Amino acid sequence: MVDPAGRLAEVKATIAGAAKRAQRDPADIRLIAVSKTRDADAIRPLIAAGQRDFGENRVQEAAAKWPALRAEADGIMLHLIGQLQSNKAEEAVALFDAIHSLDRASLVQALAKACEKAGKQPQLFVQVNVGDEEQKGGCAVADLPALLAAAAEAGLTIAGLMAIPPAEVEPAPYFALLDELAERHGLAGRSMGMSGDYETAVTLGATHVRVGTALFGVRE
């Protein structure tokens, strides 16, 4: 049984190795610990081990556990990595430092309004449906230029793109596609790669990897 600090060290070493192979600086890659459905007692050991970026799927769940955890440690950066409903935009802007799932024009408008009201803007990533999967969130590749234009027009600054490749297939071509799209649109951020494929994502340009199981262990 490896302890949380040991798992964190292993994942960081894997990221560093992949970065070196790709002739990249490991410091350019942010490790987001996916803490969705994990309770505060499971999260605290990772915070104690120095982890500061955490990812949640739902606004309500994050609101229930993070204010208390943030009071215990400085420098926590909270990322919303799940789908966001437009009616939760205001709450999300208040709670999160980064939102990785901007994927439609109606959400652009809701976030612009929420950011103006709050007087701040989280880092925003546009989620792209790179596998063209009906059941998955994200804007279609063909719709990306229009969505980026809408965001700019609404006064939002986009930090990068996010994608989740189709399951059970080789993810590399999808990571390469996201990297190419980000390059084409002059965006620095590439949020891609999870527990099973983050090493590949790093070699193909990921700036943010979202890792859950490899850090927290398999769910019981």
Score class of each variant (00 low, 15 high):
L107I: 11
A105N: 12
K12F: 00
T200P: 06
G193T: 10
C139M: 06
R7A: 05
E220D: 14
A159L: 09
Q60E: 15
D3P: 09
L187M: 05
S86K: 09
K20W: 12
H79C: 05
N87H: 15
G155F: 00
V108R: 11
V130P: 08
L215A: 08
A68Y: 10
P166R: 03
D3V: 11
I99E: 01
P166D: 01
A18G: 07
P26A: 01
V108D: 11
G193Y: 03
A92R: 06
A27I: 00
E10S: 15
R104V: 04
A146G: 13
I81C: 11
D132T: 05
E10L: 13
L80Q: 02
Q123W: 11
K88H: 06
R184V: 00
K113H: 13
A152D: 13
E180K: 15
K88S: 04
P26R: 03
R30N: 13
A140M: 09
G189F: 08
E91M: 12
M162E: 03
E56G: 03
M194P: 03
R70E: 15
A92Q: 10
A16M: 01
L178R: 02
R38W: 13
V211A: 07
E91D: 14
D74V: 12
L124F: 06
A5P: 05
D132I: 01
M162A: 11
L187F: 10
F96H: 00
K20F: 08
L95F: 08
V141C: 05
L84K: 02
S86D: 07
E72N: 02
A112D: 03
S101D: 04
S191T: 07
S191P: 04
G189K: 04
A9P: 04
M1Q: 14
P26M: 01
P173C: 06
V34C: 09
A5R: 11
V93T: 12
G160T: 10
V128K: 04
L144I: 08
E183R: 15
K65T: 06
E90M: 08
D97M: 03
D103A: 05
P4S: 02
D132Q: 14
P4F: 05
N129V: 02
A19L: 04
T157Y: 05
M192R: 01
S191D: 10
D143P: 10
K88V: 11
T213I: 12
G212Q: 02
P45A: 02
E180W: 01
G131K: 00
A112Y: 07
A105K: 12
A114C: 03
N57I: 02
L8G: 11
D132H: 13
M192F: 10
L78H: 03
K36M: 03
D41Y: 01
Q127V: 02
A146L: 06
A110M: 07
A167L: 12
L215G: 03
F216I: 00
A42C: 12
Q51G: 08
I43S: 12
A172K: 12
C139W: 07
G75R: 11
A49K: 09
A154I: 04
K12V: 09
P145V: 09
A182D: 11
E220R: 14
A112P: 03
D143M: 11
I15C: 08
V141F: 00
A94G: 15
I164E: 05
D179N: 15
V126Y: 09
S86T: 13
